[in-house]
Each structure stands twice: as C-alpha cells, then as structure tokens.
Amino acid sequence: MPPTDPHGDGPERPMKDAATVVLLRDTDHGIEVFLQRRVNAMAFAAGMTVFPGGGVDGRDADTTVRWAGPAPAEWANAFDCDESLARSLVCAAVRETFEESGVLFAGSGDDVVADTAEYATARQRLIDRDLSLAAFLAESGLTLRADLLRPWANWVTPPPAPRRYDTRFFLAALPAGQLADGATTEADESGWFRPEDALADAEAGRSMLMPPTWYTLAELREFGTVADALAAQREIVKITPTLERDGERLKVVLEGR
C-alpha cells in the first residue's frame, strides 16, 4: 500500500528535486534581485513571482559536464545529499537560469562569458530538450563555473500540494557584462527589484509570493552588498512549511523559524 498523505485523504504525492537561483546585482540603491511572474497557465505556482529555476532533468547528472569550482562532494555536503544528486542540482541551477533568464554561469579558461547572445540558438534547444547541458558546453568550448554559485537554502513543498518539490536554493551574482531577460514562455513579467520593494508589492497585493520566496527576500534585505550576501555563512536545513487553517484562511507555519 502506498504511503498516505498526512494532511489529506489520498496517497502521498511524489517528490521531485529542483534547483532555484537567486540572482543578485549591486546598485546605487542597494542590492537587487531578479524576479519573474509565472504565467497563469503553469501547472505549478501559476501567477506567483519567483526566482528562476525548475526541476532536475535526468541528463543533469551527466558526469562529462565540463566543471570548474567546488566539486560535487562539497555540494553534497552543503545540501546533505549524495554526489550524483549534488551534481544534478548544480547543473540544473545553471541550465534553468540560462533557459529562463539568459544568464549563463560558464566560461573559458579563467574568463566568464560576458555576452550570451551568441548562444541564443543553443538556449532554445536546451528549452526544447533537443540539447543537454553537457553537449552544449562541449560544443561551445565552455566550462560550468560552480564557483559562481553559493548554497543558500532547502525548501520542501508541503504535503497538501498536488505537485511537490525538494528545492535547493543557490545564490549568485549577475556575471559582468551579462543581462538578465524575460525571454521565457514561463513568465509574463521579469525584472530587478530591491528585496524590500518586492516584499512591499506582495504586502500590498500587487504580487503573490510563495513562502520560500518571501522568506528569502526578507533575509536578503539585511545585506548591503552582493558580496556581503555571498559571504554569509549558511547552515542548510531542510524546511517544510506547514499549512494551518485560520478561519477561512490558510496560514503558513515555519517550525523553528
């Protein structure tokens, strides 16, 4: 008999691993974060304002990916998972960020890509699943730059949700010369926001944020620069919000937070 959902009547929903990248840049008014509003037709988090990211693809575990920076073993230690999954999560983070925002954490030698325009065709092929990340990097003579990412958090979709994700959050600075765009069919709006402004929009009802996004933005507003955020010491603890009914409203409870 399949395990039951402790918050519902049916079987427990299957969990999918996912990666999300919190993309930051410095401005004269403080740090800004790149956010996208998901189109209403999306099966998960429709209409929500989110960071770029998505589910792990089977090909993200390809060990032939050209790699520089912390080894999978270090990411496995940070996220408390095995090395194969750790490799997949980093690759998914790089791939999804490129697909959804055009930002690419890769380079040649010691140089990071400064203009991703020449890889527009490859970007679309990645989106269409006609090309794997490993093949794209090999064909382009590029190496994945895991050193540009930082482990930040681990959030799990609560059991009542019809789709559940075990999502690892990464932090990264926008590489010099690159531009983040909204050229994705998964979002109808994209842009840069100060964390406090994004939170104010949500509080005023102008946008909708999921608990992990809200909590992350609240953490980020405490940092003055991107370097400060990237240097923060993080203990990654798996967080699963609990939904409790308060009259006609559902309240999100974060145990120990």
Rank of each mutant, 00 (worst) to 15 (best):
D5H: 02
G8K: 09
D9E: 10
G10A: 13
P11V: 10
D17T: 10
A19W: 02
T20M: 11
T20V: 14
D26R: 07
D26M: 02
D26P: 06
D26Q: 03
E32C: 02
V33L: 08
Q36M: 14
Q36K: 14
R38F: 10
N40C: 10
A41Q: 11
A41F: 09
A41S: 09
A41G: 08
F44Y: 14
A45F: 11
A46M: 10
P52H: 11
G55T: 10
V56K: 13
G58I: 01
T63W: 12
T64E: 12
A68V: 12
A71E: 04
A73V: 02
A76Y: 01
N77F: 06
D80S: 05
C81H: 02
C81T: 09
D82N: 07
E83C: 00
A86H: 01
L89M: 12
V90Q: 09
C91Y: 14
A92P: 15
A92D: 05
A93Q: 04
A93Y: 12
A93S: 09
V94D: 03
R95K: 05
E96A: 12
E96G: 13
T97N: 08
E100N: 10
A106H: 01
G107C: 11
G107Q: 12
G107L: 08
V113Q: 06
D115Q: 10
T116Y: 06
T116V: 09
A117P: 07
A117G: 12
A117Y: 15
Y119M: 11
I127N: 06
D128V: 02
D130I: 01
L131K: 01
S132G: 09
A138I: 11
E139W: 13
S140W: 11
G141F: 06
G141L: 11
L142E: 05
T143F: 07
R150E: 09
R150T: 15
P151M: 01
P151V: 07
W152V: 03
P158N: 03
P158S: 07
P158K: 02
P160V: 13
P162D: 15
D166V: 09
R168A: 15
F170D: 15
L171D: 14
A172F: 05
A173D: 06
A176C: 03
Q178L: 05
Q178V: 04
A183M: 12
T184C: 15
T184F: 14
T185M: 14
S190W: 04
S190I: 09
A198T: 10
A198P: 00
L199Y: 02
A200D: 13
E203C: 08
P211E: 09
T213H: 03
W214Q: 15
T216S: 04
L217F: 01
E219S: 02
G224N: 08
V226K: 04
D228F: 11
A229S: 01
A232D: 13
Q233C: 12
V237P: 00
K238T: 09
P241C: 02
T242L: 02
G247E: 03
L250H: 04
V253A: 07
L254I: 03
E255C: 00
E255N: 00
